[in-house]
């Protein structure tokens, strides 16, 4: 009796983790093109960030006059200081802007889940593309600081038989980085969805607490970890003697 009731209840509700926006499919030049929901959400994130930083960075003065410029200077100072702490003075100017924008982009993408949109980081291709950027940066740093010879030589260090491990290690980093961000965010979404589904109409306090942990705490920690790992990978790839 209870079992059949449970089955009937389960049949009425379907478990889904999709957001309110839908993917768009259209035909152009005889091919089918798909704009994924997560791409839309990323456009929203880009728009928000662009407008926010355009307003913050408009007509700056040598001596800050309003709160606006103080906030802008604090943000820039925070990220350049953070890059200087983790990578050294050499990278401060070059990496500060990239790390800052990457951090803002990731954290706002993660927080999109709070507004009911589909979290872009719950799409593995989004996180993979960010990880590939890091991979290219590492490759570029190695080639620039060590030259082609130094780069090839780094594969047989410390011993020649370490060659396969070094090659695997090079490719494992971006995969692990992409899956870490993806896994953390999608696990929160799946657990939240399952709890909603299980509680049904009794979903009052528990999902809010879960969402606080997964959407806020986890998002901040994971974006912090992502940029920190990016910085330490690039700093480790630096082969110049200093």
């Amino acid at each position: 009796m209870i079992n059949t009731a449970a089955v009937l209840m389960a049949e009425e509700r379907t478990f889904t983790v999709d957001g309110p926006l839908k993917s768009i499919v259209f035909e152009l030049f005889g091919k089918e093109w798909v704009i994924a929901e997560t791409v839309f959400t990323q456009w929203i994130v880009m728009l928000v960030l662009a407008v926010l930083f355009f307003i913050l960075g408009r007509n700056l003065k040598l001596k800050p006059e309003g709160k606006r410029q103080v906030i802008a200077e604090w943000i820039v100072g925070f990220f350049t200081g953070y890059v200087e702490d983790s990578m050294g003075v050499k990278y401060k100017k070059r990496f500060g802007p990239y790390i800052g924008s990457l951090f803002c982009f990731i954290i706002l993408s993660c927080l999109m889940g709070l507004f009911g949109l589909k979290n872009p980081t719950s799409d593995v291709s989004v996180t993979a593309s960010w990880a590939i950027i890091t991979f290219v940066l590492v490759l570029w740093t190695k080639l620039k600081t060590g030259g082609v010879k130094g780069y090839l030589h780094s594969f047989i260090e410390p011993m020649p038989f370490m060659l396969p491990f070094n090659i695997i290690g090079d490719f494992a980093n971006p995969i692990a980085q992409a899956l870490r961000l993806f896994g953390n965010n999608v696990s929160g979404m799946v657990i939240g969805g399952l709890v909603y589904f299980a509680l049904g109409s009794f979903a009052i306090l528990v999902p809010a607490v879960l969402s606080l942990y997964f959407d806020l705490f986890s998002a901040v920690i994971q974006s912090y970890i992502f940029v920190t790992l990016t910085m330490s990978y690039v700093a480790m790839a630096d082969m110049s003697e200093e």
Binding site: S86, A176, L179, R180, G183, N184, S187, I221, I225, L229
Partner: peptide
């Protein structure tokens, strides 16, 4: 604390593989 969070992230990787 910074090093601890990086260590945590690396330790978490195997768990995330199982999650995948």
């Amino acid at each position: 604390t910074r090093q601890m969070i990086i260590g945590d992230a690396l330790a978490e990787t195997t768990g995330l593989y199982s999650l995948i």
